[in-house]
Every structure is written in structure tokens, then in C-alpha cells.
């Protein structure tokens, strides 16, 4: 009984970890610029690695090596934001302007009309329509 609960707990934790890692990968591909991508890259480390390590801890059970997974997670939590911050900071130092929704208007939905640059709206419309369906 307890073994089955533990088995399914491991499966669920691993599945969730893989899910958040997948979402993070999708985010890196879909998001528009370096700042936005840095946000979702941190998802892999927080919940992706966190849940996978939790699954490892459950699988190992109550033994000494379990402490290592907690420590591992602790160091990931300290180092991951440092890396994300370093990327974002160097992007800011190079004067990369963050992408905003009102520059191109394509993520606000096709029903929101653009009052300036209508030719730009036209050109992105087909691309946007394809993306939203």
C-alpha cells in the first residue's frame, strides 16, 4: 500500500517537474526578447529541478543521501537567480531595450486596433492570426 503511494508520488512529482521544464523550454522559444526569456529560464531551476529533486528524495527514502538533494536544491536556489541577473544585467549594460506589448501590438489581440503604423499591423496580422489559432 505504502509502496504504491510512494510509487505514484514519484511519478507525479517527476511528471510535474518535466511539465515545468517543458513549459520553460516553450517559453524560451516563444517569448520575444532576452529579458522575457530569462524569466522562464529560471522556471526550470525552481520548479523543474525542485520537483525532480523532490521525486529523487522520495525515491531514496529516509536515508543520508536524501539530505544531499535538499542541499542541491538550496544551492540551485542561490545560484540560479545570480545567473539570470547576470544575463539581464549585461543585456541592460549593452542598452538592449526591453520588448513591450505596445510597440508592435501583436500580443494584445487582433481586435485591438492600432492607431499608428497600420501597415505594420497589416504585416503582422497574418502571422499573429496563425499563432493564435
Amino acid at each position: 500500500m505504502i509502496e504504491t503511494v510512494r510509487f505514484w508520488a514519484i511519478i507525479i512529482l517527476l511528471a510535474l517537474g518535466v511539465f515545468f521544464t517543458f513549459v520553460s523550454a516553450v517559453g524560451v522559444l516563444r517569448l520575444p526578447d532576452v529579458y522575457a526569456r530569462a524569466h522562464t529560464a529560471s522556471q526550470t531551476d525552481t520548479l523543474g529541478a525542485g520537483l525532480a529533486l523532490a521525486a529523487v528524495a522520495v525515491a531514496l527514502g529516509w536515508q543520508h543521501a536524501t539530505v544531499y538533494t535538499v542541499l542541491l536544491l538550496f544551492f540551485v536556489f542561490i545560484t540560479n537567480p545570480t545567473a539570470a541577473h547576470a544575463i539581464a544585467r549585461s543585456a541592460a549594460e549593452m542598452d538592449i531595450q526591453p520588448w513591450t506589448a505596445d510597440e508592435t501590438n501583436d500580443s494584445s489581440g487582433p481586435n485591438l486596433e492600432a492607431d499608428d503604423g497600420s501597415d505594420l499591423e497589416e504585416s503582422t496580422d497574418g502571422f499573429d492570426g496563425g499563432e493564435s489559432r
Binding site: V23, G27, A36, T100, A101, S107, E131
Partner: peptide, 27 residues
Amino acid sequence: LIFEIIKANILISLVILRPSMPINPRM
């Protein structure tokens, strides 16, 4: 902090997976 991280992760995941991706990035 972990509760906040989980909450934010779910919100961001929903936004990323939604086809229209309603993000509004701001500095």
C-alpha cells in the same frame, strides 16, 4: 518563498501555454 514561487510558476506557465500569450513586459 516556495509558495510564492509555485504561485508565480503556475501563472507564468498558463500565460506561456496560452496560444495568444498575453504578456505585458515592463521595466
